[in-house]
């Protein structure tokens, strides 16, 4: 018997952990995941609706500066949410029962498309979002106390830095995945 045959025999005789036979738990978990996905879709939809309603509620369209400022910020958020949602749906559609290489090919295309999102759309939307915020600053300065204005300014800068760092981490993570697929 050759060396590999020995290895193979040992492999097939290896004591494996016993099945827990908890089929119901598996089915429940699967249904729970489906529910979670539906909830995410509903939450994203509601967020977009709330943002648009807020825009109408504060009558931002009556004041040109507020219209552009708030409009750009809300528009960017809505576009980003829709892009992320569409991207998530695309990944969900990949079947895991296809061959390993066919799935890899789909994943490489998917992550290459994600690169366009990360390198083009995200910076563009992020910059436009900040521009919208800057447009609103004179209105804040005019209508808010100086203390509250400073608070908004500092917290916004910190939020933008945190957001940029988070996006940077996410991009790095996905670039590593692309590398491992090639």
């Amino acid at each position: 018997m050759n060396d590999f045959q020995n290895i193979k025999n040992q492999w097939q005789q290896h004591k494996t952990p016993a099945a827990n036979h908890n089929i119901h738990k598996i089915i429940e978990k699967s249904q729970g995941l489906k529910r979670k996905q539906t909830i995410t879709k509903v939450v994203l939809g509601i967020t977009v609706l709330i943002l648009i309603s807020f825009f109408v509620y504060v009558s931002a369209y009556k004041n040109t500066r507020a219209f552009w400022g708030l409009g750009l910020m809300i528009g960017c958020l809505c576009i980003r949410i829709i892009i992320e949602y569409a991207s998530g749906l695309k990944k969900e559609s990949f079947k895991l029962h296809q061959s390993m290489l066919a799935l890899n090919e789909q994943l490489v295309h998917y992550y290459k498309a994600r690169k366009i999102i990360h390198y083009l759309w995200t910076p563009l939307l992020f910059a436009t979002y900040i521009f919208g915020f800057v447009l609103l600053l004179p209105i804040f300065k005019e209508q808010l106390s100086s203390g509250f204005y400073t608070y908004i300014l500092i917290s916004a800068i910190l939020t933008f830095i945190a957001l940029a760092t988070l996006i940077g981490f996410q991009v790095r993570k996905e670039l590593k995945i692309i590398k491992s697929l090639q």
Binding site: K8, Q12, M100, L101
Partner: peptide, 17 residues
């Protein structure tokens, strides 16, 4: 898959080569 004793034709189907 080979250690599992899967026929090579089936391994080819699983991997996609």
């Amino acid at each position: 898959l080979e250690l599992e004793g899967l026929p090579q034709k089936e391994i080819a189907e699983v991997i996609g080569i």
